[in-house]
């Protein structure tokens, strides 16, 4: 068996294979639904209805998509330059920490100044957190996959320490949680009385910004070149290590915005369950979008819809909501195969 490159695929082919990947995912997960003793069609209908069947469902899906857009962008940027940032979870939490440190009254500023200040500080912290593994990679040759993964555990313990120590809410009845951020540090809601907040708008703007950086700037060109072929990039005079540093700064900063947006826009305070693995789901979001920053918006909404829909479904049908995680993981694997098949033909010999 061998792989032969295909001529440039037509738009139809480019779209057919990802759709086939989704269909395969639904087929495979319907086996699990059958194992759970439910009917796949009604379960998938309930998931779709729970994700997009009402105004409430749609608002919930977009709210859940917001952090996923940020982490998806963070991963898309990093993976494009083949910087394997698996530490978006840690960067997200650091963004949350900065938000509560600055947002609970330490800076008595009006909203229009305070929120940008917090955003910049959170991004700086997330960027700094990924800079460590990036420097270890370029200077010492330490694999960044392992260091970013291990940092997730270290940072989560660090946050736990803060929440039981200096950041602990004295009025929190002993729970490990921070104080609420002050009103000036809160992102307003888009629709009064609904959970969707301006973090979603910032996420969309970020996606457009990242798309412009990747497509229209020298940095974007350099990042793609480094990811495609580091030796070749070096040969044409690109400073590979410096490009990886800039990639790390951008990626870590974007992931930290997820933490900022969740605290400032949705939760109001920092807890240890701020993220149910948004840093890891961001990898799936980025891959489903084929690392395209604008595609990240769509794939984040899709992945969020699965999670929100499955929560609603599991309340109605007796299928564990973990089916959502299985669907998301399966779609990642079927999608990478689909992308391969748009570019290569398998020859059996």
């Amino acid at each position: 068996m061998r792989l032969e490159p295909k001529p440039a695929p037509s738009l139809a082919v480019t779209l057919t294979f990802p759709l086939a990947a989704i269909a395969t995912t639904l087929f495979l997960t319907s086996m699990l639904v059958l194992a759970a003793g439910a009917s796949p069609l009604s379960v998938f209908y309930l998931v779709a209805k729970g994700a997009a069947g009402s105004q409430f469902a749609l608002v919930e899906t977009l709210t859940r998509a917001t952090p996923l857009i940020f982490t998806g962008l963070a991963i898309a940027v990093a993976f494009r330059a083949k910087l394997w940032n698996i530490g978006a979870e840690a960067q997200l939490y650091i963004g949350g920490v900065v938000t509560v440190v600055l947002g609970t009254g330490a800076l008595p500023l009006p909203s229009v100044i305070l929120i940008p200040v917090i955003m910049i500080a959170a991004m700086a912290a997330g960027a700094a957190l990924l800079l460590g593994p990036a420097v270890l990679k370029t200077r010492f040759g330490v694999d960044e996959v392992v260091t970013t993964l291990l940092l997730n555990f270290i940072v989560l313990l660090f946050v736990s320490m803060l929440l039981e120590g200096v950041l602990k809410d004295p009025m929190g009845l002993g729970w490990p949680q921070s104080q609420k951020v002050i009103a000036e540090a809160q992102l307003p809601r888009i629709i009064q009385g609904k959970r969707l907040h301006y973090g979603f708008v910032i996420a969309i703007v970020s996606a457009v910004f990242v798309w412009l950086v990747m497509k229209k700037t020298v940095l974007g060109y350099e990042m793609r070149a480094v990811g495609h072929n580091p030796e070749g990039a070096r040969f044409v005079g690109i400073l590979v290590n410096r490009t990886l540093m800039k990639t790390a700064l951008l990626s870590g900063g974007l992931a930290a915005l997820a933490g900022f947006s969740e605290v400032s826009g949705l939760k109001g305070n920092l807890t240890l369950d701020l993220s149910p693995g948004y840093g890891y789901s961001g990898i799936v979001v980025a891959m489903l979008a084929m690392l395209n920053p604008l595609g990240v918006i769509a794939s984040a909404i899709f992945v969020a819809g699965i999670f929100v829909g499955a929560d609603a479904m599991s309340r109605a049908a007796k299928v564990p909501s973990y089916i959502a995680d299985v669907m998301v993981a399966t779609s990642l694997l079927t999608m990478v195969v689909a992308i391969l098949l748009t570019r290569y033909r398998i020859k059996w010999r």
Binding site: M1, L3, L32, A35, A36, F79, W84, I86, V145, Y280, I283, V284, M287, P320, Y322, I323, D325, V326, V328, A329, T330, L332, L333, V336, V337, L340
Partner: peptide, 28 residues
């Protein structure tokens, strides 16, 4: 191996799949 896909992405994918399948089965 035969398909030559990214070992990083597939590895993370297998971890996500194996973990979620385990939790699903446990709850089931």
């Amino acid at each position: 191996v035969p398909l030559g896909l990214s070992q990083h992405v597939v590895g993370i994918g297998v971890t996500l799949l194996a973990t979620s399948l385990t939790y699903f089965t446990y709850r089931l």
